[in-house]
């Protein structure tokens, strides 16, 4: 995790990257685009979490992909090329199968990207991003993150403490739930009492006296500038290519795909660069380190 270079760039760059990639991935149902996105997502997942985690991911993603790709042709009977007829007389069409597969791959790519997002976008980055636009909510968010571990361990503490003063309700689910919820209720009393103390500490440190600024440990450096520029150019190129209709894929009634001309190749290449940005960044900095080391 810590070794991921993309993790260390400015959160705004992080979130823009994910937004751009996911937007195009979900928006453009074209096998090439989906394929590029899926490949890049897999590569980045591998880089982030290693081979073992990747295999775990596959065990989770593959069944979902299969389910999604099967559901579509079962419910959708458009398309002209009939493969065979189902038990209920509906047609299973070639187009629907292809459509199912492509959208399943799109979905798989999305899952992978979200997995990467969960690794990269840690909660403090959201606090930073929101801090600029919605400072009060960002503060509430930060406070919630601060309270949750305390409340969870308090619930545990209370239920442990109550083991010695009340019988074990393991066998009676209704009493058990009641008991569990009264634990929650006791915890609420405690949390509210604590909340009043916390607010004293906030007031004591000047909360509510004027406009708040927001401190962060993140900075926007030249690397972030460069990455943003690359992202912007790639995104624009990709969108332009899509707008020029040189990349399109029609499924129904019959498959008709367009992917030709320099605009299409350029747009696709731009998207590939965009998707692979974190991976490329990691490779670049790895090489830089190797060179530095070899000089010593």
């Amino acid at each position: 995790m810590q070794k991921d270079s993309f993790y260390t760039v400015n959160p705004a760059v992080n979130i823009c990257f994910f937004a751009a990639v996911m937007l195009i991935t979900t928006f453009v149902l074209h096998p090439v685009i989906v394929g590029v996105s899926l490949a890049a997502a897999c590569a980045y997942t591998l880089m982030l979490k290693g081979r073992k985690a990747f295999v775990y991911m596959l065990a989770f993603v593959v069944p979902v992909v299969l389910a999604v790709s099967v559901i579509n042709p079962l419910f959708n009977h458009e398309g002209v090329t009939v493969l065979f007829y189902l038990w209920n007389g509906n047609a299973m069409t070639y187009e629907a199968v292809i459509y199912g597969c492509v959208s399943a791959c799109m979905f798989a790519a999305l899952i992978m990207w979200f997995f990467c997002l969960n690794c990269v976008m840690t909660s403090d980055k959201y606090v930073y991003l929101f801090g600029r636009i919605i400072p009060t909510l960002s503060l509430v968010f930060s406070m919630v993150l601060r309270f949750v571990p305390g409340i969870i361990s308090r619930i545990r503490e209370v239920s442990q403490a109550r083991r010695s003063i009340s019988p074990d309700f393991g066998k009676n689910p209704i009493k058990g739930i009641r008991h569990g919820l009264s634990t929650v209720s006791v915890t609420v009393t405690w949390a509210l009492e604590k909340a009043v103390n916390v607010s004293d500490s906030m007031k004591s440190r000047g909360y509510g006296l004027g406009r708040r600024t927001s401190f962060s440990v993140f900075s926007f450096d030249k690397r972030d500038c460069a990455l943003s520029a690359i992202m912007l150019v790639c995104f624009a190129a990709c969108v332009a290519a899509l707008a020029s209709k040189t990349i399109s894929f029609r499924f129904y009634p019959s498959i008709k795909q367009t992917f030709a001309g320099w605009a299409a190749y350029g747009g696709c290449a731009a998207f590939a660069v965009l998707c692979a940005l974190p991976v490329l960044l990691n490779i670049k900095e790895n090489i830089a380190w190797r060179i530095l080391k070899s000089r010593i």
């Binding site: 606090v127 604590k194 440190r205 000047g206 600024t213």
Partner: peptide, 22 residues
């Protein structure tokens, strides 16, 4: 425990300064 407002150490250190708009 009842005085800490935010979830990160660095943020907590800055909390008062943020409130005063530094």
């Amino acid at each position: 425990d009842d005085q800490i407002v935010t979830d990160k150490v660095w943020h907590e250190l800055a909390f008062g300064l943020e409130s005063l708009g530094m």
